[in-house]
């Protein structure tokens, strides 16, 4: 139930984010026993770089507490979709929060929205979509990879949010989104190698009052083909964006100050080479940072185009 309501205390069945430092976070399912590599049922002990944690000992602890590891300590947090994105098991490449937030914003999603997502992938975006559209909206998510569909379904159930999502195993490029979604959805999100192949199906699924479509593609050629298709099908306000988050590391530095002026004045005595150092608070930029993730294309389908189809 970790993603439905904000909780005070950890219970059996919760998924917990174990925070050691910004680059060392994990997600743990709080249960008594797990199956090890040999297929045997053993006590659930989680290994970190700072030692082991008996997972069952977390039950009853308040979220946000410090917990002891055998060689250090960590904090236990209730996962948000943002924390989940940082710790989830990767089955595919995933979309990160800077892009996720822009996708949700541009699609005008609010509680009650009905939205299609394809492909499901590692369900990084799915968790954020579900948070936004519940309690009375719904996410229909599709993937052509059967195992990913099964795993995503299990995750949603474990996270207590399966009532807000339908996961389907389907190749939407050839089969579409299904007749049951005709005139049903407010927004469509595409993260596919050939997004233009699904646009006819997307138009079928969008509500008669119109809706929005967003496509995420890493390559500009994909964007060009998608935009050409969108434009030919009557989509308007087609815009493409790229958003990069730049991390800043806050630093306090002492800068040495050279004392040079006295050299002109030969009479000065007892002068030092250096003045008091200057204290500076500033930021440093990482030497390597993501320079590209993907292009986000957003378009509106006006109602008249749906009537004409």
């Amino acid at each position: 139930m970790s993603f439905k309501n904000n909780k005070e205390f950890i219970e059996i069945g919760d998924v917990v984010t174990l925070y050691i430092n910004p680059n060392n976070m994990h997600q743990i399912e709080v249960k008594d026993k797990i199956v090890n590599k040999k297929g045997e049922l053993v006590d659930n002990v989680f290994q970190t770089t700072y030692g082991a944690l008996k997972v069952l000992s977390l039950v009853g602890i308040r979220y946000g507490s410090k917990v002891d590891l055998s060689r250090g300590w960590a904090y236990v947090l209730q996962p948000t979709p943002e924390l989940w994105t940082l710790t989830l098991p990767h089955r595919t490449q995933i979309i990160y929060t800077p892009d996720i937030s822009l996708i949700i914003y541009l699609l005008d999603l609010v509680p009650g929205s009905i939205v299609i997502e394809t492909g499901t992938g590692s369900a990084s975006l799915s968790h954020a979509l579900i948070r936004t559209v519940r309690p009375n909206g719904h996410l229909h998510t599709f993937d052509f990879h059967e195992q990913r569909v099964v795993l995503a379904q299990e995750e949603f159930k474990n996270h207590g949010i399966d009532e807000f999502v339908t996961v389907k195993h389907r190749d939407v490029c050839t089969e579409g989104f299904g007749d049951e979604l005709d005139d049903m959805v407010d927004a469509v999100f595409l993260d596919l190698p050939h997004p233009w192949l699904t646009i006819d199906f997307a138009i079928k699924s969008l509500k008669r009052k119109g809706g929005k479509l967003c496509s995420f593609s890493p390559c500009i050629e994909q964007v060009q083909r998608t935009c050409a298709k969108l434009s030919s099908m009557g989509f308007i306000s087609i815009e493409t964006y790229e958003c990069l988050q730049r991390e800043l590391t806050v630093q306090q530095k002492n800068l040495s100050v050279l004392n040079l002026a006295y050299l002109r004045d030969k009479t000065a005595e007892n002068v030092t080479k250096f003045d008091e150092p200057s204290k500076l608070t500033t930021v440093s930029h990482p030497s390597s940072t993501p320079g590209h993730t993907g292009f986000i294309t957003i378009a509106i389908l006006p109602p008249e185009c749906i009537d004409e189809r």
Binding site: Y19, E242, C243, Q245
Partner: peptide, 15 residues
Amino acid sequence: VNLRLFSNFLRSYQV
């Protein structure tokens, strides 16, 4: 925890 400071770069494209 996980205290982070960042800014963003956004640009739009003519396609």
